[in-house]
């Protein structure tokens, strides 16, 4: 009955497919003259986002802690400000306490930045890469604003609905709304009602997220309630998150402070703000859009598996 836990959680056959898919990603970016880069996994600074837990690590003999990144975003933006031009990388990222069928605390991310692209131009490219890796996907893609997606699948307007209406809806999932702020209520509704409906047959994008849920994106010029953030979905699963990047250093600092304030309110550790990133923005980062793609989930879809551990060589239970 006991499994041989020394053995990999993915079959060798799946690992071969995984290698082939990563090669396709390399070819995709090489053909577009996007430079492959490597950046550090550990940093003295960390993301302030309250819903992302950075793992703290200690190096012997050094008093201050380091944090494993949850995405290579800040280092990549420093490269962009230093004149790198278009860049991409495949790397491991770490997110605390995210463990389940579709989550592993350590996972592989494909992240890239394109100069002069806005969020819609980058959505085109995300869809092209996904169709390359998952050829069964139909041509084209579907784009819904966050408000349209909620109206269609949850029957309410996420910007206009009373908070009491959101609370009543989540009670229908057996969730106690007490202690959940408006964004958390929207996340619950998105996870239960909206996202599972998206991306069946072809890639779906949700864009124009509430500004409160996009600390690194620029606001929409036409509707300042919304930010230029998007997410990609296939088979009801979130695969990628992207932004038309915020360039304003002062505004970025203000948002980091606001997030740390929310962390303090929730009793979470306050994170050291990345001063190097803010200095890079101050020096001037070119207009660009960037996106992070969860590679393991793409492999899972390509391999026809239904749990992440089946496509990761050694999952969290075997390390």
């Amino acid at each position: 009955m006991t499994e041989n836990l020394w053995q990999p959680s993915a079959s060798i056959e799946v690992l071969k497919l995984r290698a082939a898919l990563l090669q396709q990603v390399r070819d995709f970016f090489a053909a577009r003259a996007v430079l492959e880069v490597e950046t550090p996994l550990a940093s003295r600074a960390a993301i302030t986002e309250p819903n992302l837990d950075s793992a703290e690590v200690r190096l012997p003999g050094i008093a201050t802690p380091f944090y494993l990144h949850t995405s290579p975003e800040f280092f990549m933006k420093r490269l962009l400000a230093a004149g790198s031009g278009d860049i991409w990388q495949a790397c491991k990222v770490f997110r605390g306490a995210e463990h389940g069928r579709l989550h592993n605390p350590e996972f592989t991310m494909i992240e890239w930045y394109r100069l002069g692209f806005d969020h819609h131009a980058l959505m085109d490219e995300v869809a092209a890469l996904l169709r390359t890796l998952l050829p069964e996907l139909e041509e084209g893609d579907e784009r819904l604003s966050y408000a349209e997606a909620f109206r269609r699948y949850a029957g309410l307007d996420p910007f206009e609905a009373e908070t009491a209406e959101l609370a009543a809806l989540v009670q229908g999932f057996g969730l106690d709304p007490a202690g959940l702020d408006r964004d958390a209520l929207l996340d619950a509704i998105a996870s239960h009602k909206v996202y599972p409906q998206l991306g069946h047959g072809r890639v779906a994008f949700v864009h124009a997220f509430p500004a409160s849920q996009a600390a690194l994106a620029r606001l929409d010029d036409d509707d300042p309630r919304c930010a230029r953030r998007f997410e990609a979905f296939v088979a009801g699963m979130e695969l990628a998150n992207g932004f038309h990047e915020l360039l304003d250093a002062q505004e970025q600092r203000r948002r980091f402070m606001l997030e740390n304030e929310r962390r303090r309110e929730r009793g979470l550790p306050v994170m050291p703000v990345d001063e190097h990133l803010l200095a890079a923005l101050e020096a001037g980062m070119p207009d660009c859009a960037g996106v992070a793609l969860g590679f393991d989930r793409v492999v899972m879809l390509a391999a026809g598996r239904d749990a992440l551990h089946e496509v990761i060589s050694f999952d969290f239970d075997r390390i």
Binding site: E98, G100, H103, L186
Partner: peptide
């Protein structure tokens, strides 16, 4: 038991 979490959002156990 299923762990669900939007990448940048609140995590839930469904």
């Amino acid at each position: 038991n299923e762990f669900v979490k939007p990448g940048k959002g609140q995590a839930f156990n469904r």
